[in-house]
Design a protein around this nucleic acid. Structure first.
Lengths: 156, 156
DNA sequence: ACGAGTGGGTTTGTTTTTCCAACTCTCCAG
DNA sequence: CTGGAGAGTTGGAAAAACAAACCCACTCGT
């Protein structure tokens, strides 16, 4: 009886519903860099102030950011990532790596992340279990939701 | 002389400008699963047909997808990821992992990816150089663009 | 004491997008 | 020759995004 017109249940979709709106991940980039003040965010991201205010509210509500005063009198606030927010950093790293690889054949990267090992970070997604780099052809999708196959909703 | 009101130059922003619009990454999810037909995409993603058509055009133009006939007479097309498109899979994996962890305390995941090693995939982002898992505190940002520091545009 | 400046937003009015349903066009099958 | 698929396109209403101006509390220079 499940409405057959619902889209595929999926954590990618659910995550994007929270942080996939325009600017949200850029906000996360800035707060991860330590730039949590409103005017800094406006300048560094280039978002309209009202849209940014809406995003910040949403991200705070979602538990990805916190809003804390860094000065009483005058009251001034700063946004910082929560634990959950920091755990979105892998998403930022993989996005950045893709852009560096595919959008800049010239190799002129706007930012380099230096890892504690001393080299420029090249993020590699590996299997937490066997440690091997994950390749597309090594993955098999197993839908768990009733009524769904890889291809789509089960034929009636 | 660079206009001081431009946002931070950044590969995350550039990548999101290509694939960050609503539904784009879900399209990529479906084509990576092998579901490349228009009506399948509409059903599995839940996107309006016109918006989906616009996204597909953009992704094909960007070189992330290809549109190829899978039948002449009647002409029918299918979208598939290019090499570049497949290389966005790490973004999907990290998004999915975050959603599974933070949006479902109940542990009921809508989909499990089985790795060739035989276990359910838990993606871990590691340093391609030293192989260690990447933690936030192990990273140092080094902006390369002239006029930009981590905090923002250089004070005049 | 006064005016200017800063930080963190909100308001207002206009442009873009999104959304949804309906429609088109080509072919195939009964 | 009627009835579907499949792959979109079209038209109009509703929702977001955008830009600029505005607001408020406070501080600083004079």
């Amino acid at each position: 009886m499940a409405a057959t017109k619902d889209p595929r249940p999926c954590s990618i979709a659910d995550t994007l519903a929270l942080v996939g709106e325009k600017y949200s991940l850029l906000v996360l980039r800035e707060v991860c860099l330590g730039n949590g003040r409103f005017d800094q965010l406006v300048r560094n991201i280039g978002a309209p102030r009202d849209v940014l205010a809406a995003r910040l509210r949403r991200l705070v509500d979602a538990g990805v950011l916190t809003r804390r005063p860094y000065s009483e009198r005058p009251q001034r606030f700063e946004y910082r990532p929560t634990r959950a927010g920091l755990e979105l950093e892998p998403v930022l790293l993989t996005l950045m790596a893709w852009g560096d690889r595919h959008l800049r054949a010239d190799g002129e990267r706007p930012m380099v992340l230096e890892h504690s090992c001393g080299r420029a970070l090249v993020p590699v997604v590996t299997c937490g279990c066997c440690g091997e780099p994950v390749r597309h052809e090594d993955l098999t999708a197993r839908p768990q939701a009733p009524g769904w196959t890889v291809a789509g909703p089960e034929a009636a």
